[in-house]
Design a protein around this nucleic acid. Sequence first.
DNA 1: GTCTATATAAAGATAGAC
DNA 2: GTCTATCTTTATATAGAC
Lengths: 194, 194
Amino acid sequence: MARTHGSRAEITGPLIRDAARRLFARHGFAAVSMRQIAAEVGVQAGTLYSYTADKQALLADLLRSHMEELLAAWQDDPSRPALDRLRAFLRFHIQTSLERPEAVFLSYMELRNLTAENRAQIAALRRRYEDALEAILIAGLAEGTMAMPDTRLATMALIAMLTGVTNWYREGGRLDQDRVVAVYWDLVRGAVGA
Amino acid sequence: MARTHGSRAEITGPLIRDAARRLFARHGFAAVSMRQIAAEVGVQAGTLYSYTADKQALLADLLRSHMEELLAAWQDDPSRPALDRLRAFLRFHIQTSLERPEAVFLSYMELRNLTAENRAQIAALRRRYEDALEAILIAGLAEGTMAMPDTRLATMALIAMLTGVTNWYREGGRLDQDRVVAVYWDLVRGAVGA
DNA sequence: GTCTATATAAAGATAGAC
DNA sequence: GTCTATCTTTATATAGAC
């Protein structure tokens, strides 16, 4: 596994991030050692410190880039009917959650291991993501196509429900992804009073 | 803090469990040392091993007793209308989740740190709890007072949604517990097609 | 039942050679 | 850019005294 003095910076960085994401998600941040990450990549432990200031910064980078990718990928069109937008959000959220279950899991679980500064930064990104959903619910109320007593609570409830898919979904299991989206859409549509 | 040779076994056991629950929930299982737990209780680290075989068994005890208390406390009455039973389940789940947020959090997060045997045991208990909810949904379908495409997915979706309350609820925040139950009841009732 | 002391292993991080 | 070697700290767990 271990190479001797081979240099390939362009790929080592991403490999470190991939290994860290996988290991942190599987065992928990504190349970994973820098040596384990290094072994997974095929470098020595000391090498990791050419790519990250410390272990915590490595986690922070993973969470920040995940949230930024999520925000960049979500394309909303406020001119469309709110129910269509909600349907699109649901599909987007389930799809990305199932594509990157490890990053999703980390983003909801390992905030506590960040410095206060990094934690605040990630929390702000997450808040923007939640606001994207709430905007749709507010539009639905204004249109009269949805009904609910509290858009903020509904936002939190829906995100928790959708993200929960990662807890039980198994590739090749009883239901494929489209079917999951369809079933959840029935539940969500009912929940928002449509 | 540290006493010298004082003996009080009746209370030290529960204190260890309380401290471990709090610390594991706050920092993560792997991030907490036996020394930290001991310091919180006011004993020396070695003393903990009079109460648990090892660190992992301490976690397993916490999760097992939490699930067992939950199952013992939930009183269902299958002769009542399914919607009433669902309402009662919702209130029970939100109430206990907010009363014991640390145990709830651990039960969903730290299964990965158990031995395979302990993990299977806890998973079976959790499954029984999920089945208690699904039984209500199945009854609702049979009654014709609910409608949903998949009772198993609906079960997982509802539990994720309700448990998510612990992620954002703050004592003394914008909403008191009864109000939260009322808002979620609106969402749940819609989701199950009532 | 609890303490003190310790065996043994592994952690995060850094320095300097190649 | 990566490796080797190492400093320093901390961890789990156990043995035996009180």
